[in-house]
């Protein structure tokens, strides 16, 4: 089964899921960061020119250039919950592969090794490595043991409509109950013919056809959901 899910067992005996993030969102995150850095560099260079291009201003400009080149991602990742501005915009975040936050050490390794990911031009090596493992880790990620996951907003269950719950006539398994609940909660997104089509599969249970079948299923769902 293909899935972007990455699962780790954490203390507490629980499996925690995270969604790994592939090259396309990361490309945009990087592009935003690049633009952001470009603006900073531009502003700084403008600001430093009056102080002498080969003197004071130039000196500080070079130091900032260095910091922006090497430390920009590190500082943001360590002190901003694994997110640079670009990553924040895309709702993605860097994390250790045991799902603990990145530390200074892992972030440093990950970002210093950008140099190799960059080879031979513009992150081609990084792209190829990303596509050669299931977790979309580039070389720096592999060495540091980090990965990029999505930390976007989670879906909220839809609000419930008023339904009279209906007790099932035959016992159903847990998985089956939950699929009926799913049906109830997502029926607003489904077209009515599709609802009818789905309900027709379960005619053996609802003993009703068409719209009545749909309604019956939704009432079953309300029962399983515990609406009383």
């Amino acid at each position: 089964m293909l899935d972007t899910r990455y699962r780790v067992e954490i203390p507490g005996g629980i499996n925690l899921d995270a969604q790994v993030v592939g090259p396309i969102p990361r490309f945009f995150a990087f592009a935003i960061d690049l633009a952001f850095r470009g603006v900073i560099v531009f502003v700084l260079s403008m600001a430093s020119i009056p102080f002498g291009a080969f003197g004071l201003g130039g000196g500080f400009f070079l130091i900032f250039l260095f910091a922006i080149e090497w430390l920009y991602p590190v500082l943001f990742e360590v002190f901003w919950r694994g997110q640079t501005p670009g990553k924040k915009a895309l709702g993605i975040s860097v994390i250790n592969d045991d799902l603990t936050p990145v530390t200074l050490g892992t972030s440093l390794v990950r970002n210093l090794l950008r140099t190799v990911d960059f080879l031979p031009l513009f992150y081609l090596a990084g792209l190829i490595t990303m596509l050669s493992n299931r977790r979309f880790q580039r070389l720096g990620d592999l060495a540091a043991g980090t990965l990029v996951i999505s930390v976007g907003e989670s879906n909220r269950p839809a609000p419930q409509r008023d339904l009279v719950p209906l007790a099932p006539s035959t016992p159903l398994l847990r998985t089956e109950q939950s699929s009926i609940i799913d049906f109830l909660q997502r029926s607003q997104q489904l077209s009515e013919p599709r609802q009818r089509e789905l309900a027709s599969i379960l005619e053996g249970i609802t003993h009703e056809k068409d719209d009545n079948g749909v309604l019956q299923l939704q009432r079953l769902g309300a029962w399983f959901l515990g609406l009383r």
Binding site: L56, G59, L65
Partner: peptide, 24 residues
Amino acid sequence: DTDIFMFGFYIKNNISVAFRCFAG
């Protein structure tokens, strides 16, 4: 002011050399 320029220059270049050396 040239000293400060050179400070920035050395930081940018020499540390970058060392980092590349590591990344290699």
